[in-house]
């Protein structure tokens, strides 16, 4: 069994969705880890869930990145452990410097809560290994600040090293301006770090893991990490 540790910040509100996906849909182990803790309770996978940590005060994720648990998350990531940041979790990973770039207000200043299509660009991360390149996933977004920004040299390096993992697209998989819900540069919906074990994305795969919820397309991220760990061996932490 693979153990998912789901970090809970004050204001996290997708922690239970991630727990449900890991434990009840996939049948794996799952445990909540309060942000004041300094250990990840023997995690094989760490999830930073969506929500509004610390009320999004100052900047999204800006306060959460200083939570005591984040040192353990950084150490886990450095050791090669798979880390998934979803929505606010992605924002926290950017603020913490575990992923490059930053999030701006959506270009139309609106909070977008809708299903969108995203295209899988890379399958050599632990969270996309079971997907196919070019696969279109129907997954919900729910954010006001998901407008991904990075300096031109950082963007160029993300592109040249194949670190854009997901892009907003239309239903046929075409990346167009009309399909970009928030103004993200290069239609970026998700990226990974250089080592490819830390992945962040604005859409919510954990809310799209069962057909009755409208889509089960998000399940592939969780199935991927379970199968990656099964084939490469899990990295148990203290």
């Amino acid at each position: 069994m693979i153990k998912f540790s789901i970090v809970v910040f004050p204001g996290s509100n997708c922690d239970h969705d991630a727990y449900h996906a890991a434990k009840h849909v996939l049948g794996q182990e799952a445990e909540f880890v309060w942000h004041k803790e300094t250990s990840l309770h023997g995690a094989d996978v760490v999830v930073l869930p969506g929500g509004f940590s610390h009320g999004d005060y100052l900047r999204t994720g800006a306060i959460a990145r200083f939570s005591p648990v984040m040192s353990a998350v950084a150490e886990f990531a450095r050791a090669g452990g798979p880390v998934l940041g979803i929505c606010n979790g992605f924002q926290i990973l950017c603020e913490a410097g575990l992923l490059p770039g930053a999030m701006l207000r959506n270009r139309d200043l609106k909070f977008h809560c809708e299903h969108v299509s995203i295209r899988v660009e890379q399958t050599d991360t632990p969270f996309t290994s079971r997907a196919s390149r070019g696969q279109v996933l129907r997954i919900p977004i729910a954010h006001g600040e998901g407008n991904y920004y990075a300096e031109p040299d950082v963007l160029a390096s993300l592109e040249s090293s194949g670190r854009v993992v997901f892009r907003y697209c239309d239903a046929r998989g075409q990346v167009t301006e009309a399909a970009n819900p928030n103004g993200s540069l290069h239609g970026i919906a998700g990226i990974c770090n250089e080592r490819r074990n830390v992945v962040g994305l604005m859409p919510h795969p954990e809310r799209a893991c069962e057909r009755p919820l409208g889509s089960a397309d998000g399940l592939v991220l969780f199935e991927s990490v379970v199968s990656s760990l099964a084939s490469h061996g899990a990295l148990r932490t203290a």
């Binding site: 100052l58 900047r59 800006a62 603020e95 490059p100 930053a102 920004y149 990075a150 300096e151």
Partner: peptide, 8 residues
């Protein structure tokens, strides 16, 4: 460290 994000 906190008040500004140097990326943006």
């Amino acid at each position: 460290k906190l008040l500004a994000n140097p990326v943006i």
